[in-house]
């Protein structure tokens, strides 16, 4: 099988909007650092932007369709799961925005991080099970090879990267809410190390494909 409309890139608007949201995050950080806004306001703005990023990614996710040959034994179930994941992210993002707008300050961080972490973990687990569940190591290897050949790697990597980063941000939020700011700041180091390991693993894999 070969996909006919691989060349289309549905992610342009999503990409531009994400870029604007990332600029907002940087602007919030700079405003806080320069004393233009209070720390609480910056935190609230940060939480709202994170929720919006999740809404945006969730909306875009079902557009990243895999060729049917990569759907496994039950394509219907796989497609349904992907659509469900998209909807779940949109609803979670909306919920997180609402939490940062309407819930009292002391619970915002805890509630939004628990919700965000739970949903992203659930979807990651479901993806891993859907793609690799019940396969041997060699079957996984050949499946990854075919995936890299048949659909653009960049968009999938971008979405995975942003979701992975959001996962860590929510984990840092939770650590901040439970143990305090110093522990949350300390989590930056494992984030960088694990990211570097993941990135090098993916790069090596990609080089082998060529």
């Amino acid at each position: 099988m070969s996909t006919e409309n691989q060349k289309k890139t549905p992610g342009k608007i999503t990409g531009i909007t994400l870029l604007i949201l990332f600029v907002c995050l940087i602007a919030l950080g700079v405003s806080k650092a320069t004393g233009f806004i209070e720390s609480n306001q910056a935190q609230q703005g940060f939480g709202i932007v994170l929720g919006l990023i999740l809404v945006l990614l969730g909306n875009f996710l079902p557009k990243l369709v895999l060729p049917l040959s990569q759907r496994g034994d039950d394509p219907h179930k796989a497609i349904r799961n992907e659509r469900m994941a998209g909807m779940l992210f949109v609803l979670t993002g909306a919920l997180i925005v609402s939490v940062w707008l309407f819930v009292t300050q002391e619970y915002r961080m805890m509630v939004s991080s628990v919700v965000g972490l739970s949903v992203i973990s659930l979807v990651f687990a479901q993806w891993a099970h859907g793609v690799f569940g019940g396969l041997s190591e060699s079957q996984i290897e050949s499946k990854l090879e075919r995936l890299n050949v048949e659909i653009p790697l960049s968009q999938r990597l971008a979405v995975f990267g942003i979701l992975y980063t959001l996962f860590w941000v929510f984990a840092m939020f939770l650590a901040d809410a439970v143990w305090g700011d110093s522990v949350a700041q300390g989590m930056v180091i494992p984030f960088i190390i694990i990211s570097a390991v993941l990135l090098s693993f993916m790069t090596i894999k990609h080089q082998f494909k060529r």
Binding site: P10, G58, N59, F60, P62, I79, R83
Partner: peptide, 13 residues
């Protein structure tokens, strides 16, 4: 034959 599958975003859905 040509096989079609959905490619709807959540908003389009």
């Amino acid at each position: 034959s040509v096989v079609y599958q959905l490619k709807l975003s959540v908003l389009e859905d």
